[in-house]
Computed example of a mutant assay.
Amino acid sequence: MKQNILIIASLANSLPHFRGDFITKLVQQGYNVYAAAPDVSEKVSESLSKLGSTYIPFKLERTGLNPIKDFKSILQLKDIIVKNNIDLVFPYTIKPVVYGSIAANMAKTPTISLITGLGFTFSGASKKAKFLQNISKALYRYSLRKNKMVIFQNKDDLQLFLDHKILSSPENTAIVNGSGVNLERYPYVPSKVNGQKVKFVIVARLIKEKGIQLFLEAATKLKKQYPLSEFHVIGGLADSPSAIKLEVLENLHQSGTIVFHGSRNDVPEFLKDMHVFVLPTFYREGVPRSILEALSMGMPIITTDTPGCRETVVQEKNGFLIPPKQLNPLVEACRYFIEHPAMVAQMGEKSRQLAEQKFDVNIINSQLVEKIDMVLKSQTK
């Protein structure tokens, strides 16, 4: 008899886009897969159905804390678990992990939680960030205590959970290298640079924590010295106190300092024409998916020496790790490629090799399914 897995997400679109290969793998392994998320569109629902999974809606306030609404989300998830005879719950991102784990515990159903990065809460130094951090730690500590396993995407996040006593020991924890990248969907394209016309690109939410402000400042500085170089920005405008204003981006675009593309659905096709991927983030990442996609396509990487990002770069082999929040190291790393354009292809080849060896989605998903198999087998003993 087939066993039932429930994957819980806070953003419906992330299920087919970021977990599609994982869902396919689970279905191939003989599991019935249910996918729960709020505010799903008909297009996403159809995509999930094509993958062989069943979509189940539930209500969730993605941001903020509202005890009454949040408790209703927990009860709704518990009902979903019970009504669909779920054998294992697999939540990812903070609210699904916390509320999904509590609901599963109420339903006496085993849970494996995936920690995909710690975000603004564990990145910021403001009073608000520290207040949220204390709440998040308490919620994680309470919700994870009966999880069968907690999986992290980098060793720094695991260590933080141990240091803050969110988890009492590393027992029943595991580390995987991010969400993985589909090497066929993001094919290797050897870079060809025409003189100093090096094309740098950032793909990110347009908030300061992702390093977009630093990228704009670096572009402003370098464009004056190297007018042939190009600085491309891809990302949707964010509803956040730290969001970059549209008028700033449009002014820089009109002056020729950057090329602002807004949000795009054809990122793999677009990256084929780019040369160097830049993400000077100081956001607490798991392993940034945007970097994995750039690695797979054979692009050198400039990113920060921070949790999740440092896993993606072998210093001076496939790119550069720079200190967070510092402009000059970013400028100098970009300048290196402008003045040594032959290194773009050389380092890009190393990036592709790293993607194949470490971040192939097939490797990551096999590891995740292995953990699921192990937990479910231990339940039947």
Rank of each mutant, 00 (worst) to 15 (best):
L183F: 13
G195L: 09
S169Y: 13
L246C: 12
G100W: 09
E247N: 12
Q254I: 11
P110W: 06
G235Q: 10
E311A: 02
P110E: 02
V89K: 12
P187Q: 01
I166G: 03
M274L: 07
A204T: 00
G235D: 10
L216H: 02
P307D: 10
S101Y: 12
G117R: 02
N251Y: 14
L252T: 11
A125H: 14
E269D: 06
L228I: 14
A36E: 02
S53C: 10
N265K: 14
K197Y: 12
Y99V: 00
E46F: 15
P16T: 07
T54F: 14
P280A: 04
P268V: 09
T109W: 07
A204P: 02
K210W: 15
A35M: 12
G286V: 01
I301R: 05
N172H: 15
Y31C: 00
K350T: 08
N32A: 09
L246N: 06
V189W: 11
K317F: 10
V193M: 12
Q29E: 09
P91T: 00
Q196P: 05
V44H: 08
Y31R: 08
D156G: 03
I135C: 02
N32Q: 14
I291E: 02
A342F: 13
N251S: 09
N66H: 06
P227C: 07
L206G: 07
P96F: 06
K50I: 10
E247P: 08
M1Q: 12
L216G: 00
V44G: 00
L249D: 04
S366R: 13
H164F: 09
G117A: 03
V276A: 00
G117I: 00
I74R: 04
Q3L: 04
I258M: 00
K130V: 01
I338V: 05
V193K: 12
Y188K: 00
V203M: 05
R62K: 10
R352T: 12
Q133A: 03
F122N: 01
E46K: 13
P96R: 10
K325Y: 10
R310E: 08
F282T: 05
N4K: 02
T54W: 15
P91Q: 11
L327V: 07
T220Q: 07
P280S: 03
I8N: 14
R352C: 05
E339G: 04
E293D: 01
L292M: 07
K325C: 05
L222C: 00
D21I: 15
N318S: 04
D360Q: 14
L376H: 06
I202H: 01
D266C: 04
L249F: 13
L6G: 03
M374F: 13
K165Q: 12
I135E: 08
A12Q: 08
K371H: 14
N251W: 15
Y226A: 06
M297D: 00
E316R: 13
G235P: 14
G195P: 05
S53T: 11
A219R: 01
I166C: 09
K128F: 11
E293T: 04
V259G: 14
I102E: 11
N362Y: 15
S351D: 02
R352W: 12
V287K: 08
S53E: 09
I68E: 07
I7F: 15
L51D: 02
T304C: 15
V89H: 11
K272Q: 10
S14L: 04
F90H: 15
T63E: 11
K381C: 08
G119F: 14
D156P: 00
S229Q: 05
E184A: 06
A355I: 06
T312M: 01
P300Q: 03
N105T: 11
C334P: 05
S73Q: 07
N265Q: 12
